[in-house]
Computed example of a mutant assay.
Amino acid sequence: MQIAKKVRGLTTFDLKVIGVILMVVDHVHQMFYPLGAPNWLDWFGRPVATIFFFTSVVGFSHTHDKKKYMERLYISMVLMSLVTWLLEKTVHFEQVVLINNIFRDLFIGTMFMAGVDQFVAAKNGNKARHISLGILWVAIPFIFSVITTMIVGAQSVPLLIKQIAVGIFPAILLAENNIMVLLIPLLYLFRNNKKIQCLLIAITALLYGLSGSTQWLMIFAIIPIWLYNGQKGPGMKYFFYIFYPAHIAVLYWLAAFLYRTMH
């Protein structure tokens, strides 16, 4: 017991810092791969999404205004789409395709969590309404995936409209981590049981491992998550919202500049 008391553990802030550091290494690989960045740098990024999924669950669970939390993520998702579009149009670094938008994954995750809240609320009455809203929240990312596919695949639709649709639609098909986003509502369901949360992460990692994907390395996210002490830590509410697009832009521009210099 004395040893346990000495172990401080990791706060939500600490988890985000770990996630940001690993994310930057991963994006260095992404941007500088055409210049010879080694593939093993990509391994550092595999636990990142899982760490941010977990902190999103924590954030959504404790926020005083879930609506504003969701609105903030949606606005960030749209702005990030605009940032990547502008970068590709102005920098013209065709060797790297910018699909980066973790805000889309996290916003879709909040829709799933909102759906879970509705299903839980159904126990307290007005079941038809809550269950219907729950199904709607869960279905929206899949509905928009179908709509987006139809718009993007239609030859009669102008390119600008297609780009706008991709930017504003919370389609799980467009999510950076695709169906792995489904891990978010599962972590939310068991937000009070860290053992089951870690088991869910391990099972997901196993499935990726069996498919031959390096995403199985997400299992290492269990280490910081297991050490999470339930505390918020220093408040830097908007740091990640600013740092994420900023570091993508800087790395993308720098890689493009060096690539042109070398070639």
Rank of each mutant, 00 (worst) to 15 (best):
S61F: 04
F107H: 00
F144C: 08
L200S: 04
L207M: 13
G212D: 06
I99T: 14
G125T: 10
A256H: 05
S213H: 09
T214P: 14
T90V: 10
L159S: 13
S76N: 02
V152D: 12
W40M: 06
I201P: 06
Q163Y: 12
A37I: 04
L183A: 06
G115A: 00
Q95H: 05
Y228I: 01
F60Y: 06
G233Y: 05
I161N: 07
P158F: 04
K195C: 14
H92I: 07
A154D: 14
I225V: 03
V152E: 14
N193A: 09
I140G: 02
T149W: 11
V116E: 11
K162F: 04
E176N: 10
F220G: 09
F257R: 11
F60N: 03
A205L: 04
W85G: 09
G134T: 02
Y241D: 02
I151C: 01
L10A: 03
F144S: 04
A246L: 10
A249D: 07
S213N: 13
E71V: 14
V57M: 08
F257N: 12
V146F: 06
H29N: 15
P141I: 02
M80I: 03
P245E: 02
D42H: 08
L186N: 04
H263T: 13
N124T: 14
L258E: 01
K67G: 07
V97E: 12
P170I: 05
V181N: 03
F119Y: 04
P141S: 07
T261Q: 13
I147Y: 12
R260E: 14
N124P: 08
V96I: 01
N124F: 09
F240V: 01
F32P: 01
N178Y: 11
S56D: 05
W226A: 08
Y69R: 01
Y228V: 03
F112T: 04
L98N: 02
G109I: 04
G167P: 09
V48F: 04
V250R: 11
M23Q: 01
K237F: 09
D117P: 00
I203P: 07
W85L: 15
G115F: 00
Y252P: 02
V97Y: 14
R104I: 00
L159M: 08
W43C: 09
S213A: 12
I223S: 01
Q2M: 13
L186A: 07
T110N: 00
N126Q: 12
V120T: 14
L35Y: 06
I203C: 05
A175P: 06
R191E: 12
I99Y: 12
G235S: 12
W216T: 10
K5T: 13
L87C: 06
Y188F: 06
I223G: 02
L227A: 13
M150I: 14
F243K: 01
H29V: 08
L174E: 01
Q197T: 03
D26G: 04
F13N: 06
K237M: 07
I140T: 01
L206D: 12
L200D: 02
L10T: 02
Y74C: 00
W216S: 11
M1T: 10
T55E: 05
S76A: 07
M262Y: 15
P141A: 09
